[in-house]
Design a protein around this nucleic acid. Structure first.
Lengths: 239, 239
DNA sequence: AATAATCAAACTTTCGAATATTGCTTAACT
DNA sequence: AGTTAAGCAATATTCGAAAGTTTGATTATT
């Protein structure tokens, strides 16, 4: 009942990002077909697509595995996110028209709304999947006026890799929302004010915050399946 | 005899980049199977991988098409290449050790060698595929000490898109090698001297040269299949 | 003449069986 | 005991046929 309606490709993709399968875990179509309610062939096809996207790796005759992540991957993803988001945001702030401002405001308010809900209810798990979508939509909209599909596509790869690691390995990811709320507000305010330097600085803060946190910390604790919880379907978000 | 031994995936990939199939052309497994000497199923699998990589697009029930490129795509690819190569090169120049220098020198000399051959013989077509490989190897090696697989992967996407357009749509691409030789020399010299500013400037020159050329030119003439020629197999480059 | 319904051809997707490969387990050998 | 070989079960890949979809041509209807 977790994935009856959705296409296996999407289910796999979401599952890889939100920790339904662990880093480096073997993905055997035969075994997954009941779980995802389809035949092994369509699963294989979905896996081939995801191999091209870099979320899955495969070696000839050795089948598929979820891509492995590590602290290094995370640092790389954060770094790439930073480069690309700064570049795209700068272009957006220069080029964005009135409709872009409207869209950004709408995206920001949707994001702020769910962040308030999370913060007030204290129930992170209930909202995290919706929050994650709104977070993406906010960043995507911020950059959307950069007018480069290729840049956006590269960014999405980095963003997904970033999120995959964060969900799986950073215990406090999803908590301490107040901080993130402020970060998003800073980005939004600077964007609307067309304050490029301020916006880029706010982006840098936002993207590197987890690295700074762990700078002199213990090496990230690896605790079992810290975030498979995030995949429990809300099931009621149709509207 | 064009692709007997190679895996269809590689043949497709090369063919898309070097103009064997045109921008937006429909790719029908049934039709291509004789040409690539395999069954349509294997082709389908290769196409799914390439869909994930962004070289092919597909819509449900409408099959596969070579990704369409345009002047805009090219500008985007050049832009992304520039951002990523500058970032990676800067890191490389800071971090690269003695072995990196050796590898870069080797790559540069291989590239310079084939560029000299092209220049002296005047026969661009004969060497272009080998040149293209050495060109890639040079840029890859230059950036290799940046120590980020994710960044390299993103770069390769931009590089391939750049090349795809250049091969297909820029008539003088492959000619006027003397210019390119100088550009590569400038990049190499600055890299070895650890002159970051100089190296980044040389990279910018190298990557944006075709855009500058066409700045006040007529819109790029679209002349039939200007570069399918590039795919004729050299067949003798085993060593 | 214009629009709608029907049909067939071409193609795409899905499927499960056939084939090949891997890695493990057991057996034989030194 | 340790090393190699043979056999076996699990899984990966390939294949071609079956089922479903799109497209465009033809015929029927307004």
């Amino acid at each position: 009942m977790t994935s009856d309606t959705e296409h296996p490709y999407e289910t796999l993709r979401q599952g890889l990002i939100y920790g339904r399968w662990k880093s480096g875990e073997r993905l055997i179509p035969q075994h997954l077909k009941e779980e995802l309610n389809c035949t092994s062939s369509v699963l294989r096809e979905a896996m081939l697509r995801l191999t091209g996207e870099g979320l899955i790796v495969s070696e000839k005759n050795l089948g598929f595995r979820a891509v492995t992540h590590s602290k290094d991957t995370f640092r790389e993803a954060a770094h790439l996110r930073l480069i690309l988001e700064r570049e795209a945001a700068e272009l957006s702030l220069e080029r964005g028209d009135f409709n872009w401002e409207l869209a950004l405001t709408a995206a920001y308010q949707r994001l702020a709304y769910v962040e308030r809900q999370m913060s007030e209810s204290g129930d992170v798990e209930k909202f995290i999947q919706h929050w994650s979508l709104q977070d993406w939509e906010f960043h995507r909209t911020l950059m959307s006026a950069c007018d480069s599909d290729l840049l956006m596509r590269a960014y999405k790869t980095a963003f997904d890799t970033f999120r995959m690691y964060a969900v799986a390995e950073i215990p406090e990811f999803g908590f301490g929302r107040e901080v993130t709320m402020n970060e998003h507000k800073a980005i939004y305010d600077a964007a609307i004010a067309r304050d490029i330097a301020g916006c880029l600085a706010a982006i840098e803060m936002h993207v590197t915050v987890y690295q700074n946190k762990n700078r002199s910390d213990t090496p990230l604790p690896h605790k079992g399946q810290p975030a498979a919880r995030l995949l429990k379907t809300g099931a009621d978000n149709k509207g």
